[in-house]
Nucleic acid binder design. Structure first.
Lengths: 340, 340
DNA sequence: CTGTTAGCGCCTTCAT
DNA sequence: ATGAAGGCGCTAACAG
């Protein structure tokens, strides 16, 4: 019972004009010279027929697909899912769609990117990857489409949207210092990575500002997993006296792992140990005690990245690196003045 | 320095044959009559030029895009992100891509679906929605492409992949009963929804089997949010004696909300109250105490749904409803025998 | 077994 | 201000 999908030709016929005129009106980017009379006639016809352009035909002709590819290492990480959401919002506003692909781990690096780009499915790539810089960039360049990195920076990659890690870390550590903590440890991210390094630097800077010795402060790499956070916390507790009274975790996820270890060790939070983490997400209030966090603009990161990419595709923008400041500190139940 | 992308014509030229022959070989679904000599020659040429078919041109010609649209209400929900992951895996195996869209809440229902389907971007739709049945189905039918529902069933929709809610609920409640609990409450899902009803039914069935009275057991609708779970737990605690010794939550997320309320009320888990929830995800071990859950095959749900949809698109399958059994019970720290 | 032909639906010079 | 014509890259009859 459903009629055949109507094309440009049907609209043209109904409006009594040539298809090329219809195309001019409906594409309508330039203020084409078309009598406003026929223009309205065409617009009406298009609406009457509920005309929808065939994206394939248009893409074939213009060699642009109005589609962005997005490649993420994991979907269950709130940082990425939120960035995707942002990218999707921004893309939608600019009439772009999002084609999603996981990094097929185990495959040759970049397989996902290539497939998308080389079959003319996407006009550009949004990349949130954990790969080592060199291989990643080579593959990305090989695709021949513009790309924007999200949540990381890589030497030689011009376009990226990242968090101001240093400032975020200082916000977190500043909170601890303000509460009176003097022995503060850091559950770091990946020390080889962009974010891990920035957060560590911010941690040390904040300590120095407070008149504490950055070099003697314990730092345990924890990565961005629950297990990593747990292991790092364990090492921290095992590593002799005097124990810190507070820890700053580089990520919400690793902080939850640390919380588990503290529970198991019988150390009350925040009485025996204050915990503050970077990134805010629903999980922060699901754990016990609810975690004090620094809210980070992850959704905005996706939005900015998509906007930048579309700008690059359209040749309107020049790329660069956007550094987003952290939103604010969300004080919950996991931080308090030190007991001693 | 990157050479122009090579097309069918380049391959044909290099192999010294006509493009149509190349097409036959490279499409190669049917055992086309082509001399194995020229076939290998073409294959070599294609490899030498690193030929990649232009998906747009192919799609325009065949009116199939090898792309599935997936519409989800939220990305940060582990159930959905895991289902997406599964869909992506299955689609990839069958050479399909995934175009993602959020339900643009606030817009007219189905806007997301329509945009994807009516511009010939997708061959079919994977739908995980929370909308009321009627509107959803009307919109979906209007798109003219086949669709498969994930994690829900709707009257009149032939194709769906769902969880065996009743069995999952019985698994959870059976665990509680086995521990010796007699006063068991249910933090239900949405009682109007498919999943909520199934889980409630399973809850009551399990009680009846254990010789307990299903009708007198407290049931509080909690939805699938942290806040809903907290509010429901609060109502439960306020609703007079005798209090239950255990609760079965219809979802992991609402269970975390309930945990928070129990902490605040000074009720120890599991000593004062056992908690078991449906769905397993990393969050289950992030909360304190780590939640005992029933693991559900959410990723498989996505896989099955994608496989079914592709079967429908290819005209090879006939659809239907697949009911997936729960995986198993994961006993963590939130359940124990009742104290009294 | 292989080449020829004819579009898929659209955009875009080039005329008029 | 509008129409005519060509072709994006590919596949699918139909010839040979």
């Amino acid at each position: 019972m459903r009629r055949r999908k109507s094309g440009l030709r049907d609209v043209a016929q109904l409006a009594g004009v040539d298809v090329s005129t219809v195309s001019r009106v409906l594409t309508g980017n330039l203020q084409q010279r078309v009598s406003s009379e026929t223009r309205t006639r065409i617009l009406e016809a298009a609406k009457a027929l509920d005309y929808q352009p065939n994206a394939l035909a248009r893409g074939l002709r213009t060699s642009r697909t109005a589609t962005l590819g997005i490649v993420v290492p994991q979907l269950d990480n709130p940082v990425f899912s939120s960035a995707i959401r942002g990218a999707e919002l921004a893309a939608g506003r600019l009439a772009y769609s999002l084609l999603i692909a996981h990094r097929d781990s185990g495959q040759r690096i970049g397989g996902a990117y290539r497939r998308l780009a080389e079959t003319h499915r996407v006009d550009g790539l949004l990349v949130a990857s954990l790969d080592s810089d060199r291989d990643l960039l080579v593959e990305l360049r090989g695709t021949g489409v513009p790309f924007v990195l999200m949540n990381r920076q890589a030497a030689g990659a011009a376009n990226a949207v990242v968090l101001d890690n240093e400032r975020a870390a200082r916000m977190a550590v500043g909170h601890l210092v303000g509460l009176g903590h003097r022995r503060i440890a850091h559950l770091a991210g990946r020390l080889e990575g962009y974010n891990g390094q920035g957060r560590l630097a911010g941690f040390r800077a904040a300590l120095a500002e407070a008149g504490l010795d950055p070099q003697s402060a314990p730092v345990e790499p924890a990565g961005y997993s629950v297990e990593g956070g747990a292991a790092a916390m364990q090492r921290l507790l095992a590593s002799g006296e005097p124990q810190p009274t507070a820890v700053f975790a580089a990520s919400l996820i690793s902080a939850t792992g640390a919380l588990g270890v503290l529970h198991a060790a019988g150390i009350a939070v925040p009485r025996g140990m204050s915990v503050v983490a970077l990134h805010d997400a629903p999980v922060a209030s699901m754990v016990y005690p609810a975690l004090t966090t620094v809210r980070t603009p992850t959704q905005e990161m996706g939005e900015k990245a998509a906007e930048m990419l579309i700008g690059l595709i359209r040749g309107e923008a020049s790329g660069g690196t956007i550094v987003l400041p952290p939103d604010d500190l969300v004080v919950r139940a996991s931080t308090a003045p030190p007991a001693d």
